[in-house]
């Protein structure tokens, strides 16, 4: 729907590949410069530019930059008895995160952090494993089929996440075949649903994020050099070798976008885990939601947000360092 080259790739490509046009312009001593065919005073241009920028930047500053920075300070504050904030600087929230509580050390929160990382990782890997065959299949159909199949991937991409989690909730409910079959083989007691639990969580997660992996991947696979594939085959490359040396290097841009679009939100997920995972499958997203919701412990919630930020960074950096590279 939205041209993928327009809507998803700018995140990764625009910032690095853009050359600042100001560098290329010949400049006159008087502060004049040619700019898009006209001769302007630099000061005038900047004044006019500020007009364009001002509202948008102000908005992003007040509602994005300031509050995000505010989270750092909030994580150092503490909570009063009624959920009110005390702006005293303390590291208690981080200590609590690491498991040091009133009753000695317990790894509860660390387990949740590790589980978030694990769920994000497994979801991403499963989406890659399903995403390559799916997009490969679509790309090798005729143009007519391709349009329709691609359309079939786009609809779940844009379908509300609550609707999709609900659909799983329904299909795994006790009266329907999946739960009955599982009960027949004694995996679950008869008359119970297949949720909450890890199976339901991963089903929900993978189906939620598969389109987010598949669409960017498709954008890359569509541009694949198929002759290179044939050449590799002619030279007796095995399928694993073909994938590793021909397909993977050419589809890495799409794969990277897909991994970012999958891993980051998967780790922070709370809708799917809340509905399908139950309390035993709590992720950091659920914990944050609790602190800002019923728990009303905002400072601890802010500390969790920063931990999530750190996990995101760790994940992305290790991917960059060659987690998937040979």
């Amino acid at each position: 729907m939205y041209d993928l080259s327009e809507s998803t790739s700018p995140h990764v490509s625009v910032s690095s590949s853009r050359v600042n046009p100001a560098e290329m312009e010949p400049e006159f001593a008087s502060g004049l410069l040619t700019w898009y065919g006209g001769i302007h005073r630099r000061r005038d241009l900047r004044m006019r530019g500020t007009l364009f920028l001002s509202l948008g930047l102000l908005w992003l500053f007040v509602f994005l930059a300031l509050p995000t920075t505010g989270l750092i300070f909030l994580s150092l504050a503490s909570r009063g008895n009624f959920g009110d904030l005390h702006w005293t600087w303390t590291l208690d929230n981080y200590r609590r995160l690491l498991g040091f509580g009133l009753f000695g050390w317990s790894p509860d929160y660390l387990v949740i952090l590790a589980r978030s990382l694990w769920v994000g990782l497994v979801t991403t890997v499963l989406c890659v494993l399903l995403g390559y065959p799916l997009t490969f299949f679509i790309a090798t159909r005729g143009p007519r089929w391709r349009t329709w199949l691609l359309f079939l991937v786009m609809i779940p991409f844009w379908t509300n996440i609550v609707v999709r989690a609900y659909a799983w909730l329904f299909i795994l409910s006790p009266a329907l075949p999946p739960a009955r079959i599982a009960a027949f083989f004694n995996f679950i007691p008869p008359g119970t649903a297949l949720f909450p639990g890890s199976v339901a969580t991963f089903l929900g997660m993978v189906s939620t994020f598969l389109p987010f992996m598949a669409l960017p991947l498709y954008a890359s696979i569509e541009r694949l050099d198929w002759e290179l594939l044939e050449a590799a085959r002619d030279l007796y490359a095995s399928s694993v070798q073909v994938f590793h040396w021909v397909i993977l290097p050419q589809t890495r841009p799409g794969l990277t976008v897909g991994v970012i679009l999958t891993f980051i939100p998967a780790m922070a997920m709370f809708v799917v885990t809340d509905l399908l995972g139950g309390s035993r499958y709590m992720l950091i997203g659920n914990l944050i939601q609790n602190q800002f919701g019923q728990g009303r412990d905002w400072p601890f919630g802010a500390a969790l947000c920063l931990a999530l930020m750190a996990l995101t960074m760790v994940g992305l950096i290790s991917y960059r360092r060659g987690g998937v590279r040979p």
Partner: peptide, 30 residues
């Protein structure tokens, strides 16, 4: 469309990309 110094352009670029790469839940908390 305006000649900004490189540093400023980079800072604005960062600010605009921030909501795209941060998990939604952090934006919501902020």
């Amino acid at each position: 469309r305006f000649p900004w110094p490189k540093r400023l352009a980079a800072a604005m670029n960062f600010l605009v990309h921030l909501p795209v790469v941060t998990p939604d839940i952090i934006l919501a908390a902020a």
